[in-house]
């Protein structure tokens, strides 16, 4: 097991991404943050707080559960528990920043974009992730990345966040047999 990001690294990455998100658009009032459950929503809350502290703006913040939009429901063999989606604002004409912990195959992001457009027509959807571990299966890329990490397909990237897991750390668990 290797530590990819320490608690300090996580803190710095979030601080940097918070600046990047605002820098990208001259008018931050059009931006809204949407975190993908169950750790992207926590990261989105932290980005929200950081942007509020830096810029004094209170951006709309939402949480998205993508279970009903997954493409592997017939494969996983059990009914996954659906959690609530909370988007208490109109997404029309907003710049939505999707937030997730790990970007891997891109399938979660595909599902998240399908879910978002069921709420309206955003001006743009951007993507912020804490870790990009490669191995994309769909033409999707992130706009803001905490850390790029080369991995084997069978490796496990584990993100721990204080709010859920009691500590901030990102670990890499190598596959027993490289895929």
């Amino acid at each position: 097991m290797t530590t990819l990001l320490s608690a300090d690294d996580v803190r710095r990455a979030i601080a940097r991404i918070a600046h990047e998100i605002v820098e990208r658009d001259r008018d931050p009032s059009r931006i809204a943050l949407v975190g993908i459950r169950s750790r992207g929503d926590v990261l989105a809350q932290r980005l929200h707080a950081a942007i509020q502290a830096n810029e004094g703006v209170d951006l709309p913040l939402g949480a998205l559960d993508i279970t009903l939009y997954r493409d592997d429901l017939t494969r996983i063999g059990h009914a996954p528990v659906v959690r609530t989606t909370e988007i208490a604002f109109s997404v029309d004409d907003r710049i939505l920043v999707l937030v997730d912990d790990v970007l891997f195959t891109g399938r979660t992001i595909r599902a998240a974009m399908d879910a978002l457009v069921d709420y309206g027509r955003p001006r743009a959807i951007r993507l912020a992730v804490l870790v990009d571990r490669g191995h994309r299966e769909l033409p999707i890329r992130a706009d803001h990345v905490g850390k790029n990490v080369p991995t084997q397909l069978g490796d496990d990237v584990r993100v721990h966040l204080v709010e859920v897991d009691g500590r901030d750390e990102v670990e890499l668990v190598r596959a027993a047999v490289p895929a």
Binding site: L68, Y69, T85, I87, A88, S90, A115, D118, Y119, G120
Partner: peptide
């Protein structure tokens, strides 16, 4: 969780795939 798919005023498409 299913109820907002039918009732959430911020949702424009009242179905999921």
């Amino acid at each position: 969780v299913m109820l907002p798919v039918l009732t959430d005023p911020n949702r424009t498409v009242r179905r999921t795939p």
